[in-house]
Amino acid sequence: MTSRRRRTRTSLTSVLVALALAVGGYALHTAGIIAPDAEAAPASTAVPTGTDAPTIETEPGAPGTTRASRTDAPSAPSATDADAATAATARAELAALPVKGKAPATGYDRVGDFGTAWLDVDRNGCDTRNDVLARDLSAITRQGPCRVLTGTLVSPYTGATIGFVRGERTSTLVQIDHVVALENAWRTGAQQLSQRERESLANDPANLFAVDQHSNAQKRSGDAATWLPADKSFRCTYIEHQVAVKTKYRLWVAPAEHDAMARILRTC
C-alpha cells in the first residue's frame, strides 16, 4: 500500500513538473524570446544572393564589420554613353547656330583684334602656349613653373608621335592650333565681340590643341568644309569643339561649313 502511494505521488509530481515546463515554454515563445525551430536560421547559413538580395561583404581594414551592397546597382556610364551624349549636345547646338555667309576679312589683324600670342588670360602665371603644351604633351620637363622644355606629343590630327625640344629650330615642330581659326571667327561674328572677348576666344583651352606643324600649316584658316584632321577617329571631337566654341562666343556658321559639321556629327 505504501509503495503504491509513493508511486502515485511521484507520478503526480512528474505531471506537475511537465505542466509547469510546458506553460513556461509557451510564455517565453509568446514573448518572442524563443523562436520555433522552423523559423530559426543557423548562424552559419549564408545570405541568399540574387537581384533582390543584398550581398554582404567584409569591409576592408575593419575585421568583423560588414556592409551591404546591392547586386543590381546601376553601373557608371560608359565612355560610349558619354561620347554619345557629347555628340547629341553638339548636334543640338549646331542646329541652334545661325547659318549665313561669311563677312569679308577686310581689316583682320591677328594681334590687333585677338591680342598678342600668347597671353595669360587665366592669370595662373603661365602663358597660354605653355599651358597647352603642359596639358597635351607627356613626359614633360620644365624650366621653372611654366616653361616647357621637352615632352612627347601624339598629334590628335594625325596620330603621329613627335618629340618636342624647345629651341629656335625645333619648337615649331609642335604648334598650337585654334580649332576655330581666328580669321574664321573674325568672319563669322567675332567682329561684334569686345576686345576682351576676342582675347578670351584666342586663348580658350577648348579652342586649342597642340598639333604637328604640317597639319597646322595645311589647315591655315580653313573651316570644316575645307579642312578636317587626317585621323578620322578624331573628327567627331574636332567638330564638337568647333561647335562648342562657336556657341560660346555667339558666332555663326557658313552654309557649307554647317553641312560639313552636320555630316561628321551624324557619324558620332
Rank of each mutant, 00 (worst) to 15 (best):
T89W: 02
L201I: 07
N216E: 04
I264N: 01
E57T: 13
T116N: 08
P36A: 12
T30D: 13
N184C: 03
R198Q: 08
T116V: 11
D37I: 05
A22G: 13
C126A: 04
Y157R: 02
K219C: 09
K102N: 03
I264T: 10
T161N: 09
T150N: 12
L28Q: 14
A87I: 12
T49M: 06
R9M: 11
G112P: 00
G61R: 03
T49W: 00
L12A: 15
A224W: 03
T226Q: 09
A105V: 00
A46Q: 11
R147G: 00
I176K: 00
A18D: 04
A35D: 10
V174K: 05
K246F: 09
A96W: 03
S75F: 01
A225S: 15
D37P: 02
I162K: 07
A262R: 10
A103G: 04
I34A: 09
D136Y: 07
D52Y: 14
S221W: 06
A254N: 11
G25N: 13
L16D: 11
P74R: 14
E39A: 12
A82K: 15
R266S: 12
G151H: 07
T267H: 07
V180D: 01
M1K: 13
V243F: 03
A92N: 13
S11V: 05
R123N: 15
Q143N: 13
V148F: 11
P145E: 12
V154K: 12
G159Q: 10
Y238R: 01
A53G: 10
S233F: 02
K246N: 13
N184E: 13
D223H: 09
F209W: 15
T10V: 08
L16T: 12
L16I: 12
V154W: 01
T116A: 14
D81S: 11
V132G: 01
T152S: 14
G115R: 06
P54H: 03
A210S: 13
G32L: 04
T141F: 08
G167K: 09
D131E: 15
Y238P: 02
H29M: 11
L19P: 00
A262E: 15
S69M: 06
I33K: 01
D204H: 03
P60M: 03
E183C: 06
K232H: 08
I176S: 00
A18R: 07
L12Y: 11
A22L: 14
A38N: 01
I264E: 12
H178Q: 08
T141Q: 10
G64R: 04
A85F: 03
K246H: 09
R110M: 01
S138R: 14
F234K: 07
G222K: 06
T55A: 15
G125K: 07
A90Q: 04
C236L: 06
V174Y: 04
S155D: 10
A62W: 11
D204N: 09
V243W: 01
R129K: 10
S155H: 05
V15T: 09
A35E: 09
K100Q: 08
G189M: 06
K248F: 00
A82P: 00
S233Y: 02
T172L: 07
Q143P: 00
D223M: 03
G25H: 12
S75C: 02
D52E: 14
P36F: 10
R198F: 03
A134L: 15
A90W: 05
N207F: 10
